[in-house]
Amino acid sequence: MFKTILLPIDLQHESSWKTALPAARRLLDEGGTLHLLGVVHDVGNAWVASYLPKGYEQRALEEMKAQLGDFVSRELGGVAGVTTHVGHGHVAETIIATAEKISADMIVMAAHPPDELRTFRVSSQADRVVRHSPVSVMLMR
């Protein structure tokens, strides 16, 4: 059992939490904390950013925070020990940085079924987290 678990989720895709959330709850110690992380992708390019409305990223961060709050109310209403975090940047890097920041004992996250061609071309976020995480990672499919 674990005292501090990080669960990164993509609120636009139920598959990112449908099986991972129950697994994380089962692994969590009594009195432990489940940290939910939503990541707002970094635009990463000044040229692209110039086409976005002024304040776009700040509004996206605020909206993510509100959506995470709604998610907790809907899916975890009444469950103690749940904290939400909004990250900004590259997904895998943000997950690892957040795990370090909160001193996570475990990261639980969803992963797509293996696809050798896609994995060869562009490594999945879950693969990057597994390879670089300082703590154990449980992938749910």
Rank of each mutant, 00 (worst) to 15 (best):
Lys18Arg: 14
Lys18Asn: 13
Thr19Val: 11
Ala20Ser: 09
Ala20Asp: 05
Leu21His: 04
Pro22Trp: 09
Ala23Trp: 11
Ala24Glu: 03
Arg25Phe: 03
Arg26Glu: 11
Leu28Lys: 07
Asp29Ile: 00
Asp29Cys: 08
Gly31Lys: 01
Thr33Asp: 01
His35Leu: 13
His35Ser: 13
His35Arg: 12
Val39Ala: 10
Val39Lys: 04
Val39Phe: 07
Val40His: 02
His41Ser: 11
His41Gly: 08
His41Tyr: 06
His41Ile: 00
Val43Asp: 00
Gly44Pro: 00
Gly44Arg: 01
Asn45Thr: 00
Trp47Pro: 01
Val48Pro: 12
Ala49Cys: 06
Ala49Asn: 10
Ala49Gln: 10
Ser50Ile: 02
Tyr51Trp: 12
Leu52Asp: 09
Lys54Leu: 14
Gly55Ser: 11
Gly55Val: 01
Tyr56Thr: 10
Tyr56Arg: 12
Glu57Asp: 09
Arg59Met: 14
Arg59His: 14
Arg59Phe: 15
Ala60Asp: 06
Ala60Met: 09
Leu61Lys: 13
Met64His: 08
Met64Ser: 08
Lys65Pro: 09
Ala66His: 03
Gln67Ile: 01
Gln67Cys: 10
Leu68Pro: 05
Asp70Tyr: 15
Asp70Arg: 15
Phe71His: 08
Phe71Lys: 09
Val72Arg: 09
Ser73Ala: 14
Ser73Trp: 03
Arg74Glu: 14
Arg74Lys: 14
Arg74Tyr: 11
Glu75His: 14
Leu76Ser: 08
Gly77Asp: 10
Gly77Gln: 10
Gly78Asn: 00
Gly78Thr: 00
Gly78Met: 00
Gly78Gln: 02
Gly78Asp: 01
Gly81Thr: 00
Thr83Leu: 15
His85Gly: 11
Val86Tyr: 09
Val86Ala: 13
Val86Cys: 12
Gly87Lys: 02
Gly87Thr: 03
Gly87Val: 01
His88Gln: 13
His88Glu: 14
His88Phe: 15
His88Tyr: 15
Gly89Trp: 05
Gly89Ile: 04
His90Ser: 15
His90Tyr: 14
Val91Leu: 11
Ala92Glu: 05
Ala92Gly: 07
Ala92Asp: 10
Glu93Ile: 06
Thr94Gln: 12
Ile95Val: 13
Ala97Val: 09
Ala97His: 13
Thr98Lys: 13
Thr98Gly: 12
Ala99Pro: 10
Ala99Asn: 09
Glu100Lys: 11
Lys101Ser: 15
Ile102Arg: 03
Ile102Met: 06
Ser103Thr: 01
Ala104Arg: 00
Ala104Asn: 00
Asp105Glu: 07
Asp105Asn: 05
Asp105Met: 04
Met106Lys: 07
Met106Asn: 06
Ile107Pro: 05
Val108Tyr: 01
Met109Asp: 00
Met109Phe: 02
Met109Ser: 02
Ala110Thr: 01
